[in-house]
Amino acid sequence: MTLRVTGLKVYYRTLRGDVRALDDVTFGVEDGEIMGVAGESGCGKSTLGKSLIRLDGRMRYVEGRVDLDYKELPIWDDADMNDFRYKEVSLIPQYAMSALNPTRKIGLMVRDLLESRGIPFDTVSAELERRLGLVGLDREVLGRYPIELSGGMKQRAVMVLATLLNPSLLIADEITSALDVSTQRAVAEALVGFRDNGFVDSLIVITHDISLVYQIADTIMVMYAGKLAEKAPTDVLVNSPRHPYTQLLISSLPEVGVRYEGKRLSGIPGSPPALLNPPSGCRFRDRCPVAFDKCGEEPPFVEIGPDHFAACWRAS
């Protein structure tokens, strides 16, 4: 098992109290697994990605533990995490444009980055060029400024950069949401290529678009209001979801070929609860069509089938 997250709680500090963005999250990612994390805005999926690499000033580690390759990650300690960041855990941020320094040529920036980690640039430059080739970029991009590249090219350059030291775990946070559909596909398939080539052991792909992770992921985890709702192998989750939230989310997606006149889809009424003082019990209770008395108690996230986990009293 590459990654093991147990009872992780990460809150945001605000003047009015803690916002429970990540509340008691437990899951694992196997070697060679691509796990998709899907959910609506504010469900805690980006907080999850960030907390595995760097807690920013507003985030507060509360409890829980994270193990990567059987070593505990000191995620609460910014300085100690430096030994793991980039080498063991790496992140591709949502906007590649903001990850690249606009005043430095890309090659120079890669050199700076590697040397800050104590790695001489020359030892990896051949590998860097080979990997740029694999994602369809010419080595000339190293001599260019970020502004000279298109969005998709920048995104792919950042992907190569992030995985250059063969990290165990790569986190890709909404990396395709700003791209056009054809570029989106190329970038998503490049991610799978990284895993197949052994550049990374396992991948967490965070997205709001469940149909994108359906294309590339081995397992999908659905989050709702800071908690895990359901996790299952991709085909199981998409074809026979058990949590009512997953079911409603999937049935509200218009697909190519579905027409308004023929089959009218419906959304999920209501909105997610505020996480400042979240209600007790199941957090989806107010919007759930099958809620009953028992939902006043919080449902545990338990295994309901082979590798199929859900947090719902109705599902277990």
Binding site: E40, S41, H208, D209, I210, L248, L249, S252, L253, P254, Y260, E261, R264, L265, S266, G267, I268
Partner: peptide, 14 residues
Amino acid sequence: LDASTRIDVLNLLG
């Protein structure tokens, strides 16, 4: 918009 409210706006257009 989020996936769960998208379809409501689309239906409204319809």
